[in-house]
Simulated assay, not measured.
Amino acid sequence: MDAELEKLVESGKLTTKAAEQLEQLRPGSFCLHKSWGFGQVAEWNLLLNQIVIDFKTKPKHPMQLAYAAENLIPIPPKHFRARKVNEPEAIKALLKSDPAAVVRNILEGFDGKATLGQISEMLIGDLFTEAEWKRWWTTAKKAMKASGYFSVPAKKSEPIALRTEPVSRADELLAFFNQTRQPKEQAAALDQIIKFHHEFKDPKTQLQPIMQRIENTAAQNQKLHSSLTFELVLARDDLLERVPGLTTTRPDLTVERLISEEEARLTEILPKLPSETRLAVDGIEQLAAGHTNPKDIRRKRQGRRTANHARPRCPRTFGQQ
Rank of each mutant, 00 (worst) to 15 (best):
K113L: 14
E23L: 14
Q220H: 09
S35I: 06
A90E: 10
I51H: 02
K184R: 14
D98N: 15
K56P: 05
R104A: 08
S151D: 14
T229L: 00
T249V: 10
G148R: 00
P294F: 08
E108L: 15
A264K: 11
V152H: 04
R236G: 14
E263M: 13
K7L: 12
L127P: 09
E165Y: 13
L246H: 05
Q182W: 03
L234P: 03
E263C: 08
H33F: 05
G303M: 07
E261V: 08
V9A: 02
D171W: 05
P294M: 10
A140F: 07
I214M: 11
I193V: 15
A82F: 00
R169W: 06
Q50V: 00
E285Q: 12
I51P: 01
A264T: 09
E231H: 13
L5F: 05
K142A: 13
L94K: 13
A307W: 03
Q286G: 12
R257L: 12
A18Q: 15
A219N: 08
E121W: 10
G117F: 00
V85D: 02
A235M: 12
Y67V: 15
R304Y: 09
R250A: 15
I124V: 15
A307C: 00
A101S: 13
S97R: 10
L207P: 03
K113M: 11
R26H: 13
R213G: 10
P88C: 02
P27N: 02
I73L: 14
L174G: 08
S157T: 11
Q208Y: 04
W44M: 10
L287R: 06
Q206M: 06
P274F: 07
T267S: 12
A131I: 13
K184M: 14
E285W: 05
A146D: 10
V233Q: 00
E20D: 09
S260W: 02
E108W: 01
I269Q: 03
K223T: 15
P244A: 14
G290T: 07
A280T: 06
Q179T: 09
I124H: 05
G319Q: 08
D111R: 09
P62E: 01
K223V: 15
T277K: 07
D126C: 04
E215C: 06
G117K: 00
N221S: 12
K145M: 13
L14Y: 03
F80Q: 03
R301Q: 11
V103C: 03
E172Y: 01
S151K: 10
P166S: 04
A100Y: 08
I194Y: 01
K141D: 07
A188N: 09
A18L: 02
Q118V: 03
L287F: 00
K78E: 14
E199S: 15
L94G: 00
D237K: 12
R316M: 11
K7M: 07
E263F: 05
E185W: 02
D98Y: 03
W44I: 15
W137L: 09
E70T: 14
G112I: 02
T164G: 13
E43R: 13
A218E: 04
Q321T: 13
G39V: 07
D171G: 02
R250G: 06
